[in-house]
């Protein structure tokens, strides 16, 4: 299982190396691969963040679906905040609510928390086991169940497939 972590870390490092160097010269690629492997061995010798990653075609498909949903939400979020900012009466209705997540893996929870921060009017303040505390710019429901439905569900159904 540890091999998988090191491999994924190496691959990520190598992809970044190629993107930054912007060349396909075999020598440069070889140096990059060597460096990525050394760094992964040094810094990821005991890490286990990637062992929860599912490497199946379905997971890849859902990753792209998720990215699409995420980008749409990001644009909606910006238009939402922009319209609130330029409305003279400043229509905000803020509060901190709690929501629950079914996601078990730490990686999945991290991505969920980050996605929530980047979507309309919500900002993750803290996460405590399976409870997330969210600052909501326009509180529609204070109830835990209702807030979970509104904020978490749209991402969770994809992340569940990717990270379980």
């Amino acid at each position: 299982m540890q091999i998988k972590n090191i491999l994924v870390a190496t691959l990520i490092g190598f992809i970044f190396w190629v993107l930054l160097n912007n060349t396909l010269d075999p020598l440069i690629l070889a140096i990059g691969a060597g460096l990525a492997l050394i760094l992964a061995l040094l810094f990821c010798a005991r890490c286990n963040v990637f062992s929860e990653l599912k490497v199946t075609p379905a997971a890849f498909g859902y990753t792209f679906l998720y990215l699409g949903v995420f980008l749409v939400e990001l644009v909606k979020s910006n238009l939402d905040v922009a319209s609130r900012v330029i409305t003279p009466s400043l229509p905000i209705n803020p509060g901190i609510v709690e929501v629950k997540t079914h996601l078990k893996s730490r990686m999945g929870r991290m991505i969920l928390a980050n996605s929530i921060t980047l979507t309309p009017g919500t900002l993750t303040i803290d996460i405590h086991e399976d409870t997330l505390y969210i600052h909501w710019i326009d509180v529609q429901t204070e109830d835990k169940q209702g807030a979970t439905e509104k904020i978490v569900r749209k991402f969770e159904k994809y992340l569940e497939k990717i990270y379980g």
């Binding site: 979020s77 905040v81 900012v85 330029i86 710019i137």
Partner: peptide
């Protein structure tokens, strides 16, 4: 718009909201 949001929002948390979203996109 994010900068205007920083000025207009009433408290830190709402300012962070305006700042994060607008600056990301």
């Amino acid at each position: 718009l994010g900068a205007i949001g920083l000025l207009r929002m009433p408290d830190s948390y709402n300012r962070i909201q305006a700042g994060t979203k607008a600056s990301t996109l």
